[in-house]
Design a binder for these strands. Structure first.
Lengths: 234, 234
DNA sequence: CGGTTAGTTGAGCTGGATCAAGCGTAGTGG
DNA sequence: CCACTACGCTTGATCCAGCTCAACTAACCG
């Protein structure tokens, strides 16, 4: 909700409408796959607590995570229009989620064009993240990819109050991280070591500490414009 | 239009509404950048003829194309909700486009929830393509990336009647292709040679010929589900 | 305190990058 | 009609970022 308000004005009445979309909340176990590609879905999932991801895989088991989701993210709002997803959704940690039935979104899209556009906007932001990751995967070096991921999560977690200055929890294993940035776990390990030794940033046991934000952003060529942090006149 | 009808029912009246969105048509020169990242936009662009792409670049000039667009694609419908794009849009060939002012989309989103959902759906499909490309860039080998790109464009061009069986025009240079698949032009050249020598597919002077579709798809691990070709009950 | 999962490090390898030269062909203008 | 140029494609030689394989260590957990 805070996430939406950061980008556009939401009236008190609208806020109530959004709250009423939720039919129930649920707990999800760590490392469990919540939604599988191809299955027909009639609800969407709002992430309240924990870390989730979208991923696709190849026949040999190689996996590519296409986006990370943090508290406040609508993990699969796009399933409302797509009906089936082209990717899996997995909880990386234990999570708390809110369930939003598609019928309620259907009603929303009928009666609340402004909120519909706002939700449309959030799915377009996901696409913007995908594009930035395509740039990372296609063109950035290993160290830049990891620096970029840390920069992005730093901003996104900061938006929902989950950072403490330059420190934050990011409970990813090095294997998970490797699946985000298209590298092997071994190389991720060596690259993290580089960042640590250069006193740029450190990631240990699910905790990130940034020592030099400016240098981190420079290594990543991080430009947060794709995260659409500012409110636009509409 | 045919593209939409392939995925959902559009009434004759709705079709008229969509036609009226267009304010004008225009020609765009090959190799010209139509929209630059960050600029505020008040129109969206429907591609009528030609080939366009979305791309982002790094400071050293390295470029990553994040999606190709063919006739019938709404190239930057997402700018309606985003207001500024996070990427550039370039015409790869001479193109014909239709201009849709955002004010008209605003009215549409107010009066036509069904069509709004349909347009929302198309931007979600773009995101699905981005995710599949992330998988390619992160995990597929060079030959699989190229085989995948050929498989995808074969289907997408086929949808709008721009293929002739296993042959189609795809006026990309090897440099363009390299920027799609995150490789160097030299390596793209060698990989195309492999595909040609293995009698899988051939790409020369902007013309693709597939010799063995099954093998092409197998190399790519191509699964067209992410292109949402079937109409879903809604 | 034993087992299991995550992280670390070394040695050697390889897919794709880099650098560089040459080729084919479509314009272009004299 | 033919040089000249420019652009895209091709090929060879060499290099290196990141991969693979394998062994070891640290932390956590019941």
């Amino acid at each position: 909700m805070a996430k939406l308000r950061a980008r556009d004005d939401v009236s008190a009445e609208e806020e109530q409408v959004l709250r009423n979309l939720i039919s129930e909340t649920r707990d999800v176990a760590a490392k469990s796959t919540l939604i599988r590609a191809g299955q027909r879905i009639t609800i969407s999932t709002l992430l309240l607590e924990g870390l989730m991801c979208r991923y696709k895989d190849l026949n040999d088991g190689q996996r590519q995570i296409s986006e990370l989701h943090v508290a406040g993210d609508f993990v699969d709002l796009h399933s409302f229009t797509l009906k089936r997803l082209d990717h899996n959704i997995m909880a990386l940690t234990a999570c708390k989620i809110a369930v939003v039935p598609h019928e309620r979104l259907q009603l929303l899209s009928h009666d609340h064009p402004h909120l519909t556009r706002l939700y449309w906007f959030t799915t377009n932001m996901d696409a913007a993240v995908h594009r930035e990751w395509e740039l990372s995967l296609g063109r950035r070096s290993a160290i830049a990819r990891i620096a970029h991921l840390l920069s992005e999560t730093h901003v996104r977690l900061g938006l929902v109050g989950l950072t403490n200055g330059l420190e934050f929890r990011l409970p990813l294993t090095q294997v998970d991280l490797a699946e985000c940035v298209g590298l092997t776990p071994v190389h991720v390990n060596r690259t993290l070591k580089l960042l640590r030794e250069d006193r740029v940033a450190d990631m240990q046991r699910g905790r990130v500490r940034i020592f030099d934000l400016e240098r981190l952003h420079a290594i990543a060529e991080f430009n947060p414009a794709y995260l659409y942090l500012e409110k636009e006149p509409r």
